[in-house]
Design a protein around this nucleic acid. Sequence first.
DNA 1: AGCGCTCTTTTGAGTGACTCAAAAGATCAC
DNA 2: GTGATCTTTTGAGTCACTCAAAAGAGCGCT
Lengths: 153, 153
Amino acid sequence: MSTLTQPRAAWRDRLRAAGLRVTAGRLAALDYLDDHPHSTAAEVLEGVAPALPSLSAQSVHNIVHDLTAVGLLRRVDLPDSDAARYETRTHDNHHHVQCVVCGRIEDVDCVVGHAPCLTPSQTHGMRILEAAVTFRGICPECEARTRDAAQEG
Amino acid sequence: MSTLTQPRAAWRDRLRAAGLRVTAGRLAALDYLDDHPHSTAAEVLEGVAPALPSLSAQSVHNIVHDLTAVGLLRRVDLPDSDAARYETRTHDNHHHVQCVVCGRIEDVDCVVGHAPCLTPSQTHGMRILEAAVTFRGICPECEARTRDAAQEG
DNA sequence: AGCGCTCTTTTGAGTGACTCAAAAGATCAC
DNA sequence: GTGATCTTTTGAGTCACTCAAAAGAGCGCT
Ligand SMILES: [Mn+2]
Ligand SMILES: [Mn+2]
Ligand SMILES: [Zn+2]
Ligand SMILES: [Zn+2]
């Protein structure tokens, strides 16, 4: 029932290409994150638990760390988030919108090339490598809920 | 020796205006953060300790939390940072550059109004409130150090 | 297919930022 | 000054994450 953009065979190849061994935990984590982007380590653990009950929390931390190091995963740090999040969509430097009410997170494509994001007004002499942009807002559902609550009040 | 942009009397007024009581801990934290922007709660504690040895870590957390809630402080969450940082420069929605090597943090003014920062390509229906932009790069000092090390190697 | 080196996972313990709650203390309106 | 209320302190606890050593699995090789 899952809609995986990357079949398992592809993950196997990419793991090997990165010099990493193919393990059940790594494949399960990649599958899960491909289907559930922006998940925390704890959510990955919970998500793969039915299929891989023996996988430990420590292993999930090892896995997301190692896969991020070789570029198979990307780590996303959002404000007001206690835990780091991970996704399989890497190397496109896309950004994120987050609803301040319900926490819903969505991707935002970066205007690549002529990037306003990559041209700060003052760089303090720093050579800029990348820009992490997090938009904070209110999603339609939460806005509607807020409106309804206001009308009753 | 400190170069405070806000004299103590001004902080007293702003605390009162916000409905908060004027306490030694709050004034000390505001003074320190005015002089040392982007400090963590632990750094604030260490910084005010000489003048206020009795102030507890818990109090510093209470203080930065409460002052952020009323807008006297702004909380800054940066990637790869274990602790939240705080600053007195609020309500101008400025951004930050961070050196990935030494961690040095500098302010970057936002191009207010015609903000590329505030106009994501896809909003997923969300009403955008603000954009948090963190530029990651290498500062001149770290770049020079890296170059020197490469020449020796 | 089986062996064995090496990498990975598990197990166990620990750190550090932050939170919650109740008691002691300070602020400020009166 | 006095008292109600807000703050700070004290004490304990949570949670993400880290470190390290032992157990286990992957895979190159024969
Ligand atoms: Mn994403
Ligand atoms: Mn700043
Ligand atoms: Zn929402
Ligand atoms: Zn630097």
